[in-house]
């Protein structure tokens, strides 16, 4: 099976600071790949590179058969890479409905009318019908996180990058996020999901990649990865005997 996204030897340096040294992984269609690692492992930097916000200094990113390292942010969005942010970056002076329409119009190149119709469907999926006309700046954290997912979905992505969508939420709120992820899986999205709330993420992922110090440590079945010696050492801080 050909991966939808393939990352080989991905690296980035800021001066002498080598944040990513060599990251390798494949993401397949309709797969949810969880990404774990200690703070400073370079997880968010990796998402910034995949979306084009940062340019990799080495390595390749192949998306749907095309090398995209040189492509602009705009081109990548239009090709089908969407993302959410660790701290939600909603358009606060716009309503939730307008936020999602904007995602459709600019991310997917839809007409405003089509994007508006799509926005109503997405509001349904993310369970935000009641808050459709609420300004994003007045939404609570859970709704902002939901809205982030909704706006990313509006650009009709093939791959969505989640950056700690469950971070800062209570247990019952996290269940709401998991519900949305389950719906998205049914709709065929491929997802890369960075998370610190590991137990939550493990419930919704097919494979897990562990990163540390800018390299991929291990990737595989969630249970196997989380019980591996490598993860225990670099992430959970268990020392070698």
């Amino acid at each position: 099976m050909t991966p939808i996204l393939s990352v080989k030897d991905l690296a980035i340096s800021f001066g002498s600071n080598h944040v990513l040294r060599s990251i390798n992984f494949d993401l397949y269609e309709n797969e949810v790949l969880g990404v774990v690692g200690p703070n400073g492992a370079g997880k968010t930097v990796m998402l910034d590179i995949l979306t084009g916000v940062l340019k990799n200094t080495a390595g390749t990113i192949t998306f749907m058969g095309q090398e995209i390292s040189k492509k602009s942010i705009y081109e990548r969005v239009r090709m089908g890479i969407g993302r959410t942010f660790q701290i939600p970056k909603s358009f606060e002076g716009m309503t939730a409905y307008e936020n999602i329409i904007t995602g459709g119009v600019y991310g997917a190149g839809m007409s405003e009318k089509a994007a508006a119709a799509q926005a109503e469907e997405i509001l349904d999926i993310i369970g935000m019908n009641e808050h459709a006309l609420t300004f994003a700046g007045k939404l609570g954290l859970l709704d902002r996180k939901r809205l982030e997912i909704g706006v990313a979905m509006a650009s009709k992505p093939k791959v969505i990058l989640f950056d700690e969508v469950a971070g800062g939420l209570t247990e019952s709120e996290i269940a709401g996020v998991l519900e949305i992820v389950a719906k998205m899986r049914k709709l065929g999205y491929s997802i890369i999901w960075i998370e610190h709330v590991i137990q939550t993420m493990l419930k919704g992922t097919d494979r897990v990649l562990c990163m540390a110090n800018g390299v991929d440590v291990i990737c595989g079945e969630p249970a196997m990865v989380m019980s591996s010696r490598e993860v225990e050492e670099v992430y959970l801080g268990v020392k070698k005997k």
């Binding site: 979306t51 705009y74 970056k89 909603s90 358009f91 716009m94 600019y106 997917a108 650009s155």
Partner: peptide
């Protein structure tokens, strides 16, 4: 829509296309 998005958060607007 683009202008209102840029007004609120330019970086996010760019990532949204």
């Amino acid at each position: 829509l683009a202008l209102m998005a840029m007004r609120d958060n330019e970086d996010a607007a760019e990532v949204r296309g």
